[in-house]
């Protein structure tokens, strides 16, 4: 990957470890990410994907190792100023849903340092593009899952971040919106933004990522472009690669057993 040398390093993790009680969730993650990359961060449930992202955002404390974002160790950034260049879409749509989209988005925009007017104007235009204009001043509590997801996406992008953490950003979106969001990601990456994308939908990850990182049991088990992973594992689709690397083969057997238990009444 010779072109990475000229690229700017956006974030790096050095020997990142964390455990909750006796459970070792991350067992030494080493990773360097460069500008303009779309990273598909995948792994089975409970592998530590969300934890990695939450550590980088300062949502989880108590890790060991070093997390450097935009050239600065985040443990030493007392002002949290590095967060001003990050956008985050959490996996679960936790949101102050008694507010309207307008109120919530301007609030978040202001937290990221935008003026009220700027935040309001940008949020309004983005929401309109996403088809939220009719409900823009209605409480988020009454939104459908997809609409909430759109609000979260807009909230993560208002301040034009350089680094995006997206945790299942497409969940709940309809097919058209999915196409829009995928295209947005591609264009943002082309502008030099870095996207850290976690998802369980392998087809999407396969298509949009230019680098795929697979973690299992708190460790990185594969890292490279889709083509590189294909070559190494001699499998056709990312789904198959995923199954192979996480040591899972019995899906047919398990499904069969599952169905047979269902049929016992």
């Amino acid at each position: 990957m010779s072109k990475d040398i000229t690229r700017k390093e956006v974030l790096s993790l050095r020997d990142l470890r964390i455990s909750f009680g006796t459970k070792h969730v991350l067992q030494g993650i080493d990773l360097t990410v460069y500008e303009g990359q779309i990273i598909g961060y995948i792994g089975p449930n409970g592998a530590g994907k969300s934890t990695t992202v939450k550590i980088m955002l300062g949502l989880v404390q108590g890790y060991t190792g070093e997390v450097t974002i935009f050239g600065q160790n985040i443990a030493q950034d007392e002002n949290n100023s590095y967060k001003g260049r990050i956008g985050y879409v959490p996996e679960v749509a936790e949101i102050y849903d008694s507010l309207s989209a307008s109120e919530y988005l301007t609030f978040v925009g202001e937290l990221y340092g935008l003026s009220y007017e700027k935040a309001e104007e940008k949020a309004n235009r983005l929401a309109t593009l996403f088809g939220l204009q009719d409900v823009y001043h209605t409480r988020i509590a009454s939104y459908s899952k997809g609409m909430k997801q759109k609000v979260l996406l807009i909230a993560s992008l208002l301040h034009n971040p350089d680094l995006l953490f997206l945790d299942e950003p497409l969940s709940g979106l309809d097919a058209n919106s999915v196409m829009i969001v995928k295209e947005i990601m591609a264009q943002l990456a082309a502008e030099g933004k870095t996207i850290f994308y976690s998802s369980h939908i392998m087809e999407v990850v396969e298509k949009i990522s230019n680098r795929i990182i697979l973690i299992n049991g708190g460790q990185i088990v594969a890292d490279g472009t889709f083509e590189e992973l294909q070559k190494d594992s001699k499998e056709g689709t990312l789904e198959q690669i995923f199954n192979q690397l996480t040591g899972f083969h019995e899906h047919q057997q398990m499904a069969k057993e599952f169905v047979s238990i269902v049929q016992e009444v």
Partner: peptide, 17 residues
């Protein structure tokens, strides 16, 4: 307190001085 108290993640992920 809030019904949607979990939404407070926003305080942590934004650069509040």
């Amino acid at each position: 307190t809030s019904e949607k108290y979990k939404a407070a993640w926003i305080y942590t992920t934004t650069p509040i001085k």
